[in-house]
């Protein structure tokens, strides 16, 4: 398996896309460290599923909005594993408000979890990547497209993408590759936080040339690829995984549904 013997930390790795990334990397042979925010039971369950694939799985609770919790998490990783090969900055949070409704608390919270934590985790992770490594940042199309009540998250993801480019250059001499994935809306529970209209998922399908919404495995397949040696010449890039949705203009309806494909792992 491509990632046999590697040690991977997935922030926010217990549920949603994070869970899918954790299990994908485990299926590729990586030992996984699952950072979670509040729900220990959910994290334990993800770890148990990962272990069933024959790898080591460890969970660490840490609120990434707090730098001291990030420090504590990496000290635990250093003590337990002594090194790190892969970091997936996946944890994200946000406040679903328009720009005019955003207060500074909501702004700080979102920026701290989605952008600052990625920087702080990378700084600590890089010191543990003594033989090089891979960092994958999970962004979203909201970094460049305007989506309703997505201001804070969209801006934080734009920061994350800029950070990806700076880190890719700065960490290249250390043999650390840094890239990001910007997915279109992925069919997970989190999507419901931003869509009150039950018809929206159908609109998303209609305006996506691939003929369906992005599924978690569409993202995890790209994460696994970026973690592999096959991606060694890809640096500082933002890989868009959206079934072509961002290429179309508003109201565009793809002809027929010839493009419809199902996700496969």
């Amino acid at each position: 398996m491509a990632l046999n013997g590697k040690v991977a930390l997935i922030t926010g790795g217990s549920r949603g896309i994070g869970r899918a990334i954790t299990l994908k990397l485990a299926s590729e042979g990586a030992d996984v460290i699952i950072n979670f925010f509040r729900k220990r039971g959910t994290a334990e369950s993800t770890a148990e599923t990962a272990r069933s694939q024959g790898v080591t799985a460890h969970i660490i609770k840490a609120n990434l909005a707090e730098p001291e919790k990030i420090d504590r998490m990496f000290t635990e990783i250093e003590n337990m594993f002594g090194r790190l090969d892969i970091l997936v900055n996946n944890a994200a949070s946000g406040v679903a408000r328009t720009a005019m409704e955003l207060d500074f608390d909501a702004w700080d919270w979102t920026m701290n979890v989605n952008a600052r934590a990625a920087l702080l985790c990378t700084q600590r992770a890089a010191r543990l990547m003594r033989n090089g490594g891979v960092i994958v940042n999970i962004s979203s199309l909201g970094s460049r497209l305007v989506m309703p009540i997505y201001t804070a998250v969209g801006v934080s993801k734009a920061a994350l993408e800029a950070l990806t480019r700076y880190l890719a250059i700065e960490l290249a001499p250390l043999g650390i590759r840094v890239n990001a994935i910007a997915a279109g809306p992925v069919e997970t529970e989190a999507l419901k936080l931003y869509t009150t209209d039950p018809g929206i998922p159908q609109q998303m399908v209609t305006s996506t040339p691939a003929g369906r919404m992005v599924q978690p495995e569409d993202v995890t397949n790209v994460v696994a690829f970026l973690c592999s040696d096959a991606a060694s010449m890809i640096r500082g890039q933002i890989i868009i995984v959206d079934g072509g949705a961002s290429l179309t203009s508003l109201g565009y309806t793809p002809p027929g549904d010839k493009g419809a494909q199902s996700a496969s792992t």
Partner: peptide, 13 residues
Amino acid sequence: DSLDIVQILVAVE
């Protein structure tokens, strides 16, 4: 607001 409540929950935990 909802963010404050999440932060209170996390701090209590």
